[in-house]
Every structure is written in structure tokens, then in C-alpha cells.
Design a protein around this nucleic acid. Structure first.
Lengths: 235, 235, 235, 235
DNA sequence: GATGAATGAGGGTTCATTCAT
DNA sequence: CATGAATGAACCCTCATTCAT
């Protein structure tokens, strides 16, 4: 307020460094076609950006970090996504869609019984998580808005994922392969959580470095041995 | 005015805490320095602040949000915590210490067998989570520092919690109450994760409002029926 | 703005720790009379506070620092000075008044010739500076308001100090003890500056630790040998 | 909006610096990366910022004051200096380096005797101070860290400056042009101080506006007449 | 179309000042 | 009267967003 006379006139700091020319032969347009595709460029950005968001929280990743990884200008980013949040949302959505497609494929297989499907789903999920850890870590730690209530989209994603597992369990119960005395959803929720947690936490590495690999099989067994019909076989 | 005259705000928060009569005998005033007042205020802040941190991430909660909830001035907050991070850390630590104390108490009980202890631990944990949901939601979604690697303190907390459960499972295995063919740590990790997830996510409420209560018992049964010796008894 | 609903209600953090009673015998009023004097208390504060302001800038000294040194409460300070700036101004003023009184005393001596007076003034000033370094460091580094233009009060102080020296030089010129071909004010300004700088900067201590004592005599000689009548003696 | 939508300001500072024709041949655009633009902007800021720091202390100058003077946005300042302290340090350093270079040039001259060099140094310094008053006022009133102890860098600057003068005096003593009975460093310190003070304080302007010009010559004479061999020549 | 310099709202933090106790 | 808990304006700094180039 003291010196707030601030003349609205122009300042002198503008600089216009254009570096060396981009186009060696004007009119030649030696463009690689697959990058020119708008959607493909988006996906390229999404894939690489997921790396950053997986390692740090939304607010911890700056646009400067992003463009450094992406190798593009800040303004360019805004051509593909209207803002940072949209890029973030896209990352999560792509991850979900891919994983759900994978689970759906297994779900539809006719050459497998429910037990095999559960095994397969668990291993596929674990495998997928290992390949795309970044995105799924993003998904695991995504932003809740209100108390105990995550964003609608996130909840829907989660419901779809768990529902896919639960559906198999239900099939197993109908076919009397699994015990009927438990809630398929609760089972699916618990199993998924256990797998996810094991994938995300680097836990227990102190015991045996060789065991650092995800113990997916053990977890699935833990669950299936408890619910399978075979436990009743002795009866 | 010359040397920066700041006009501070007006104190308007009349202390309404008159607890335990200040002056027993007028003129006597034998007051204990009343350090507990300070600690009490800290705890009060911790408890209310957890509300916000439970609903949003660390970076999403601003001091302005906090003081709005707390009904205190910004400077006041700094009398009780040296900065935002310390307040946050305190929230998490308090939660951990309390929960661990609870589990430890059960762990030491001599009038319970491992099965009962597991049940009790699960229910106590669920109950405690329900009472202090905010703080434990904070703990569940806490800030990771490096990719896939949470802060040392958080990892320690987590290890202690799970170790407490695992220890009971080991006891059960030694006493041949539980099957010996699974890793107690993996079991404990999976069980804890399942309970936690159930407590924190408001999930599946669409099916049956009456079922919105936490299905702790079902989860414990899911796990115990799968691992308990009794399932092999018939054999 | 998001959550700015801030209920104007009272909060709960007030605490009223009164520690042990101040008055052992109510009504006895065993007050030491010399501290009760308002002006004396002010001076007491001024003297001790100068210590802090000498070591750090005005803005670097906080009220918390001050009350820690003074051993009084923050509110008490405001009974003796209406704000921080007034305390600061008082420190500088007291310093000036004291030094000026000292110089004035020498100025009025009738048993000394100008040369002796200059010597005496220089040594008195140096001695005084050493005793009250704090206050005079404050004065040396006081706050200028506008470019090249220190506060009116500070300029007046400075003018009075230098004028006192210049007056002696003029006397010497009139008595033809000093050469008439230089400006008494410029001389006084330069001499004072040299003495002050030597007193304030811890300079050249690397050469000889024993020489760290102020080289007042050398400085005065430097000036007097250049202006004394003895340079005219050969004539 | 969900994930913090900040509305940034609108860029309104059209760069008017079109220096030296950007495009010699349209389409050719052989531009040097133009790093000098950055440095030029920095220097521009340094020069103007010195204005403020000369008039007020470091802590008294706020970023808002600075950007008001500079006519740039707050964030822009941080593109050129990593923080306020760095800007301040740069101001002082630039001033020191420039002044020292000037003195060094005179110091190395072979066509001058020590007396002439001292005169020249004094006048060059006074002239330089007049041109860059702001920066040198900053240097004169710079920030002390500990009581009586200025920052290492500042001390080094000061030592270098005074050492340059003292070195000339020593030469003069060796060549028996100056009297050998005084400390070159003390002399240099006193002379420098006198010049500096005269340059910085607007003093004595009440007597004669015409005399407001710096009385560099008089001061140098004051000192040289006291030390020159010529005063002893008559003896 | 791509770029990044410029921007300023908003972040966490400090501290002179007030006033209930 | 002395106290220090409470206060909030103002500090320095960050970074998502814009737009001239």
C-alpha cells in the first residue's frame, strides 16, 4: 500500500529465445504419423505422467516435473489436457479401464471353473499391478473428497473391480464349489485388498530378500482354502 | 508507524473452560502450574484436526481450513504445534499409540486362547476405528515419501500393528490350534487390511442399509474358518 | 473461502496459569522503592534492551527476545512504552543524550586548550563507546527512512555531536593553534567517523590480537599531526 | 475445481526489448540462445532494487515493494533470483566487484606516484559512489549477523577495499614519500570511512547548497597534508 | 502448433499488539 | 498492575495457468 503506485506500463524483461529452427526443410513436413494423432499423444503423456504421480501425491507433482519427464513444453500440455486435474483423472481412468478389461476377459472364459478363474484373476491382477505399478499406486492412494467418501468415479471403479471378483465367487457358490456361508462381496473386497496391499507395500523384505516377490499364490491359497468346498470334503 | 506498525487482531475467544474451580480459598490460589491445560488443548486440536485430514490429503488441508474448523486464530495453532507437519504427525502418532496399547493389552491377556484373542483384537480394533475413525483414516491414507516406500515411522507403526496380530497367530500355530501351513505375517497383514478397508470405505451401502454396520465378525470368520484347526478336525 | 463458515463462538483453549503467589504477606507491600519509580523502570528496560538491539537489527529483535532478557511479561512492556518503536527510539535518545552531556562537559572545561580537548573528547568518546557499545552500535546502524536521508531526529543528534567537535576545532583555529585552511565540520565529521568505525568494526584482529584494543590515540594523532600548528612551526 | 483450481494472473507485460533485430534473414533465424537476456534482466533488477534497499533496511523492504518498483510480478522475481536474500547479496556483490575493479585498475598504473594514486582512488571512488549511490549505500548499511561482527563476505569485501588503499600507502612509505610513523591500514580505514560518510550523509546542506557537492578533494587533502613528506620537508 | 516467461492467488509461518485473567 | 494466550495482517515463497512470441 505504501508504494503501490505500480505503473501499469510494460516492463523490460521479455525475451524471445527461439533456439535453432525446428524444420530443416520447410514444406517437407517429415512428420511421423503415429505421434500426430491427438489421442495417441494424450496416451503417451498419460503413460509417462503416471510414473510421477505414482511416486508422489497429486500436489507434490508440479507441472515442471511433468514437462521435464515428458520432454514437452508447458503450454503443449495444455493442448492435450485442459488442466492438471484432468490429466490426473485420465491416468486413473485409463488404469481402471485396462485392468477391468483384463478381468472381464477372464470372467468370460468358459474353459475355467470358478476356482481357476479366481486364481487367474488374482495372478493377472498381481501381474498387471507389477507391470503398471505406477498407475495402480495412483489409484490406490487417490484423493478422497469428503470424509469416508471418495469421489463417485473412484467408487464406481472400485465397485466394478470388486464386483467382477464377487461375481465369480457367486458362480462358485451356485455351483456348490464354494461354501455358501459367506458374502461374496466381502470375500472379494478382502481378497482384493490383501493383494493390493501386498503389491504396494514393500513389506517384510527384512526377512528374506528373495521373498520380496509378491506372494500372490500364498494369499489366494489363504482365501481359497478357507472357502473352497474341499474343506468340507472330509465331512 | 515508522517502524512497521502492525495492527493485530482482537482477542475474542473468551476461555470458557472453568473446570475444577480456580479459587478454592480466595487469596489462597494454590494452583498447580496446570501443564495439563496445554496438553489438553493439544489433544483437543488433534482430535478435531483429524476430521479434516481424514477427508482430504495433507496438502489439501490448509491452515485456513483448520482454524475454521477449530475456531481459533492461525497464530494460536502455532502455540501448540511448531508447524503443520508436526500437527499431522501428532495425529498419526496418537492414533498409533492408542491402538497399539489396546492391542497390547489383549495380547497380554492370560485368560484367552489365540482364537479368542484374534476375535477380541479384531472387534476391539473395529470398535476403536469406529470411535476414532478420523485419525485412523488419516493413518490409512498417509503420505508416502518415495515411490512404494512409506516413511520410516509409518512403516514402523504398521509393522508393530501387524506384528501384534502375527504373534498371536504364531502362538496358535505352536499350540496346534491353527494350521501350520501359512505365514502368520501374511495372514495378519491380510486380516488387518480387510478390517481396515471395511471400516474406512462406506462400501456396499446400496444393498442394505441395515448392513452398513461393520461386518467385523464375518471377516474374522472368513479368515479363521480358513485357517483354524477345527476345519481339519473332521479329517 | 471454502469452509469460511467460522462460528464466532468461543473456543476452549483459554488457560489461566497464575503460578505461585507474588505477595507473601498481603498488605505488607515490601516494595523496593527505586524500582517502583516509573521512569527508573523505563530506564532499566532501556539499558537492558539496548543489548539486544546492538547485536541485531530492529526487525531481528522480537518482543519475546526482549522480555526474556528483561524478565518481565509482554504486557508489562506495553505499560512503559506504547510500542516497540518507542522503546527503540528511547534507547537511541538516551544514548545520544548521555554522550552529548559528556562531550559538553569537556567542551566547557577552561583548563584545557583545544588540542587537549580534542584528545580528551576522542578518548572519552572511545571510552564511552566501549562501555556502552550496545547503545552506540544501535545509533551507528539506525534506520534510514528515505534515500540518503536519515530520520530528522537522528540527523539532529549527529549534527550536535559533530558540532561539538567542530566547535573546538574552530576555537583552535581562532587561537591559531590549528591551521586555518580546512573546514572544522569536515574535520570533525571525518574524525568522528574514523573513531566510530574503529570502535564498531572488529577489524584487523588477524594481525595482532593484542592490538584488538581500539587504536584511538593513533587515529587522533593521524588527524592532529595533519592539522596541528606544528606543521607551521617551520615557517 | 476439485483439485485446487488456481486462477493465475494475466500476463500483461509485453516485452518491448527488440534490441538488435531478431531476424536478419527471415527464415534464417540463426539466433544465439541469448543467455545475455537473462543476465541483462538480472542486472536490471539489481540496479532498480538497490534503490529500495538503499533507502530501507533489508527487512523493511518487502517483495511487494520490490515488484511495485520493478513493475514485474512476484513470481517473475523468483525466476531471476532464488529468494530475496540472493537478490540482496547480488546487489552488494555487484557493487563490490565493480568498485574493486576500479580501484585495482588505478592500483596497477605505473605512471602515477602514490600521492597521485591516492588522489585518483579517492576521486574515482567518490565519482563511482555518486553514480551508484544506491548500491553503495546498501553496502554501507549492510546487515550484521552477530553483535559487532558482520558477515564473513562483507568483512572480506571491506578488507579488500581498504587493503587496496593501504597497499598504496605502504608503497608511499617505502618510497619515503609518506611519513613512516603511522599504520597504513588505519589510515586507509579512516580515509575510506570519511569519504564514504561524506558521500552517504546529506550532511551540512543547510550551510550552502552549492557546497552540496562532495568535498572529496578537501578530505583527501586533510589526510595527505598530515602524512605527506612535504610537511616534514621544512624540518 | 509449441513454447516458457510472466503472473498472482494462496500457501505456511511470524510476531507486534491486545485484553481477559 | 502484571501476565501471556490469542490474534490476524503481512511476510516470503510456490506453482497452475495464460498468452505473446
Amino acid at each position: 500500500m505504501v508504494l503501490r503506485g505500480k505503473s501499469p506500463g510494460v516492463h523490460k524483461l521479455g525475451s524471445s529465445k527461439k533456439r535453432e529452427m525446428k524444420k530443416t526443410f520447410p514444406g517437407r513436413a517429415a512428420r511421423i504419423p503415429d505421434i500426430s494423432d491427438f489421442e495417441e499423444a494424450r496416451n503417451h503423456i498419460v503413460e509417462r505422467a503416471a510414473n510421477l504421480f505414482a511416486g508422489r501425491r497429486y500436489d507434490q507433482v508440479t507441472l515442471d516435473d511433468l514437462i521435464a519427464i515428458l520432454g514437452i513444453g508447458k503450454g503443449t500440455l495444455y493442448r492435450y489436457f485442459s488442466n492438471k486435474a484432468e490429466l490426473y483423472a485420465r491416468i486413473v481412468e485409463v488404469g481402471h479401464v485396462n485392468l477391468l478389461a483384463l478381468l472381464g476377459e477372464i470372467h468370460g472364459r468358459e474353459d475355467m471353473n470358478p476356482t481357476e478363474k479366481l486364481h487367474e484373476m488374482a495372478f493377472s491382477m498381481a501381474h498387471f499391478l507389477r507391470l503398471h505399478q505406477d498407475i495402480y499406486t495412483v489409484m490406490a492412494i487417490e484423493e478422497p473428497k469428503e470424509r469416508y467418501c471418495r469421489s463417485d468415479k473412484m467408487i464406481r471403479y472400485r465397485t466394478e473391480r470388486i464386483g467382477m471378483i464377487a461375481s465369480i465367487v457367486e458362480q462358485g457358490q451356485e455351483k456348490q464349489i464354494f461354501r455358501p456361508d459367506f458374502d461374496p462381496w466381502l470375500f472379494a473386497q478382502s481378497l482384493t485388498g490383501a493383494l493390493w496391499v501386498e503389491a504396494i507395500f514393500p513389506f517384510r523384505s527384512e526377512v528374506d530378500e528373495g521373498k520380496k516377490i509378491l506372494r500372490t499364490g500364498e494369499i489366494v491359497s489363504l482365501f481359497l482354502d478357507g472357502i473352497g468346498m474341499k474343506v468340507q470334503a472330509p465331512a
